[in-house]
């Protein structure tokens, strides 16, 4: 009788590791956990604060004001005719914020959750995914702010005479997906590596900030091209910025919403492919780590 039953094992726990071991059925079974994690993040983030969710608005608004003052009023970066620099910066910051929140939120997954990871099993991928989803809600709120300012500038001032959304705005979900994939991929890779080598966690904080300067958040890409042509900026730096997938997505976002810059299908596809690649890389590292991290963290 035993020999017949021998084949009926439902689950196996073994040391063997496959590079990508995504059990979609299992993740689907735990979908409620994903939503509850998102709910937890949203509920608890601004508990015991007076302004509460208004903080979601305060941070991008103040940053935008400062950027406008420093980069446009003092350093006089030209954001293009008929586009108020405030709106230009707000678009950049809103999209950049989503990426950076995804990246820094997932980059300490293992370390921040070691207590719970050390006690119970659930598909670990749920945790970084929940960060991405809950940040999506914040991004939605910030997007609403952006839209309100957009309408304000368009209908109540003549500063935004040329700001018009372009038809490619239909691709917006994909642009958001690209940002999420890059943030998630890097975040998962970093969180896997920091379990063993803590050095990387120091890198994340200022690394994200440095990356922002190389991602065309507060200046248009056309400015970089112009500077390279005039020989003010080394060519290498110019192309690094140009082919940074985040530059492409932010430029795309601004193009879609404000009509600045131009749309290039090749660049769009390039960014999409790179983001999928980064995501897979992060996923492989994450999978490799999740089985043994509790011994190394």
């Amino acid at each position: 009788m035993n020999t017949i039953k021998e084949n009926n094992w439902l689950y196996t726990i073994s040391p063997k590791k496959r590079a990508i071991n995504l059990n979609f059925k299992e993740i689907w079974n735990y979908r409620d956990l994903l939503f509850l994690f998102v709910k937890r993040d949203v509920i608890t983030q601004y508990k015991q604060t007076i302004l509460g969710p208004l903080w979601y608005l305060a941070q991008p608004l103040f940053t935008t004001v400062i950027f406008t003052l420093v980069f446009n009023n003092i350093a006089s970066i030209d954001t293009g005719d008929g586009i108020p620099s405030f709106l230009f910066n707000l678009a950049g910051i809103t999209s950049w914020n989503y990426f950076s929140a995804c990246l820094s939120g997932t980059s300490d997954t293992f370390k921040a959750n070691q207590g719970i990871f050390g006690k119970v099993y659930f598909p670990r991928v749920i945790t970084p995914l929940s960060v991405v989803v809950s940040n999506l809600l914040k991004f939605g709120i910030q997007l609403l702010v952006f839209i309100s300012f957009y309408f304000y500038f368009v209908y109540f001032t003549d500063a935004a005479s040329l700001a018009r959304p372009v038809i490619v705005i239909l691709l917006l979900p994909i642009v958001i997906l690209i940002m999420a994939l890059i943030g998630l991929g890097f975040g998962m890779a970093l969180s896997s590596m920091t379990t063993k080598y803590r050095d990387l966690s120091y890198l994340v904080g200022f690394g994200v900030q440095l990356l922002m300067y190389g991602s065309a958040v507060m200046y248009p890409l056309s400015l970089i091209k112009e500077k390279v042509e005039h020989g003010v900026l080394p060519k290498l730096v110019g192309s690094l910025i140009e082919y940074n997938p985040m530059t492409i997505t932010i430029e795309l976002f601004r193009h879609m919403t404000l009509g600045v810059g131009e749309f290039s299908l090749t660049k769009f596809l390039y960014a999409l492919v790179v983001s999928i690649f980064i995501f897979l890389l992060g996923l492989i590292l994450f999978n490799k780590t999740e089985k043994s991290f509790i011994d190394t963290v």
Binding site: I13, S14, P15, G118, V120, Y121, K291, S292, I294, D295
Partner: peptide
């Protein structure tokens, strides 16, 4: 929570 080194 953690994998075995050998065995299953």
């Amino acid at each position: 929570v953690t994998g075995p080194t050998t065995g299953e």
